[in-house]
Design a binder for these strands. Sequence first.
DNA 1: CATGAATGAGTCTTCATTCAT
DNA 2: TATGAATGAAGACTCATTCAT
Lengths: 190, 190, 190, 190
Amino acid sequence: MARPLSDEKRSALLDAAIDLFSENGIDATPTAAISKAAGVAEGSLFTYFRSKDGLVNALYLELKAELAQVLMQGLPRQGSIAKKLEHLWNRHLAWCTGSPKKLRTLERLLLSNRLDDTSRAQGAEPFRELDDAVQRAVDDGTLRDLSLPYLHQVFQAMVTATLQMIASDPARAASYRREGFEMLWNAVRR
Amino acid sequence: MARPLSDEKRSALLDAAIDLFSENGIDATPTAAISKAAGVAEGSLFTYFRSKDGLVNALYLELKAELAQVLMQGLPRQGSIAKKLEHLWNRHLAWCTGSPKKLRTLERLLLSNRLDDTSRAQGAEPFRELDDAVQRAVDDGTLRDLSLPYLHQVFQAMVTATLQMIASDPARAASYRREGFEMLWNAVRR
Amino acid sequence: MARPLSDEKRSALLDAAIDLFSENGIDATPTAAISKAAGVAEGSLFTYFRSKDGLVNALYLELKAELAQVLMQGLPRQGSIAKKLEHLWNRHLAWCTGSPKKLRTLERLLLSNRLDDTSRAQGAEPFRELDDAVQRAVDDGTLRDLSLPYLHQVFQAMVTATLQMIASDPARAASYRREGFEMLWNAVRR
Amino acid sequence: MARPLSDEKRSALLDAAIDLFSENGIDATPTAAISKAAGVAEGSLFTYFRSKDGLVNALYLELKAELAQVLMQGLPRQGSIAKKLEHLWNRHLAWCTGSPKKLRTLERLLLSNRLDDTSRAQGAEPFRELDDAVQRAVDDGTLRDLSLPYLHQVFQAMVTATLQMIASDPARAASYRREGFEMLWNAVRR
DNA sequence: CATGAATGAGTCTTCATTCAT
DNA sequence: TATGAATGAAGACTCATTCAT
């Protein structure tokens, strides 16, 4: 998809949106505030995105893609499932801890009624490969006999729980990370 | 003298809010829609609640109190910690499954920026007794050496994960419930 | 006009209205605020006055009548026109200085669009006798050949001017009062 | 770039406000009525003025500035104090007579609770030079030994009184103007 | 393309008045 | 009569989106 427009401005708008969405919520953030924070004219937002919802969906895709990329990077494809899970666990926590605003925004996006089905599907896309990697591990009996989505949910759930703890006591982040993974592993291994 | 404030109308307003909030989100639900759905005049909402935020906070308190009450009911105070946790697990899932709109609303409430500190504190209040019950179990070494909040988070997270599964495949609800608890228990027991 | 209702409550309402009107203005004062300040129920205001405008007009009449009475009291009917004017001058200033809230309210009433013609006429009524007294003095050549209304206006205007000064420097009230009358007298005498 | 803020629209809004404020009062004039009368969209009022109060204060400043300018224009700076006062007198009456709506609006503005201190101060600013001119005349003994504010008040008072007369009998305007000035002069000269 | 003024539907909240108790 | 809850029509202001410049 050719993008004849300035990538810089597009990014500035998305970054501004992350800032404001994470802080005030999506509905409570006027498009004008986003434009202003991005240093562009009010109207320009609409040359980069069809509408506010357009921006919202684009932002969702962007964040999901970034997260997927972070998770895949350095994935020990040959390692044991435990190693793989631990990699994902650490990466995931690292991203969330390092980009709390993006995380918060992602949560808000998920709960908003603004994501269309296409976006949800497209957002899951980059995780496909990852899922496959995990599925094989389930099949070989190392893990409990869980459906992939359930595993996903549990993983996600433990991440969220651990994140909350890290947020409330950042000094003990490493300890939470280790303990959290142990719990996860105990939960899902056969 | 004069007409007394009607508990019925107050409830109707809160119920209508649950309906609409769960469906459309808080910000996207006009107060007029709530009044209408509750069958009262637009202005009446404001005789029962100071403002939209007033209603939102009241609703939060209401839901938290209801949940706490459901969880406490029939809690096997003499039983083992496993029994206690299982009771909480089943009750929690039951409430969420039985009142999906309330659950959704609670999630939205939590992510909204409308809850004031007082409400958050007051909302946690009814869980105090429950927390104590669990704390003792942690102390006697049955469980991992987790801080109470962490345990809370993990419990909550696993509930959420399991709920998602139940939502996507209600027929297997019982199976998810059992498997979920096993995972939780494996995760938190020493 | 028989008034079967409690005069006390009626007065309380009018007094409360004076307080609030003088402070916030007429339009900016809700009837509920008046009732509350008067210590009666919201609805009671409407058993004592047909409507908010009804109260407003009644208040106007009340204040005009009170002012007229104050001015007439002790009027030296046999004295020279100068004596008479001075009496009115002093009385008028005294009333305004002593009841600044009533004065302010009267000003606001006059500028509001809520006084009906009947009230305006009725409010002028108590001054009729006073006017006659003055008219005779004009006729005998002591004063400039002014129409009575003009004299009225000038008198009123000078009162207002002097009042402002007294308000801004109460310590010198007596001095302003004397000087003001001198100016008035110089202006209107032949 | 883009459409520049149009002075025409701003003026149209202020003019419409004068019309409606003078007729109905400030509180009783909805912003929507002003926009409509000015021929712009409801929302546009708020691109020209922060709020209704913003418009109100701007209007006050505008009127005060206009009045000051009218009074200064052609002021006989070398003439006697009597000449100066007469010039101000005539100009003042002329402006008030010629712009009765502006006058009425100014009165309402003054009695409203919407003018902030900044505006009141700023509104007095353009009269500073004029005040100085008069002060010197007081100092040289031509006038009574009045404080400047008092002189101001008396002048204003006589204007108001005379204006009322002119309003009630426009045919005799010139006669009122002359007679009024004589009275003023008699009042304030030594 | 960039800009930001223009638009007007939509939102929360207030308030005079009525009326059930 | 006293009370104050109920009513719903305004009213000030916001905001996504358009479009003149």
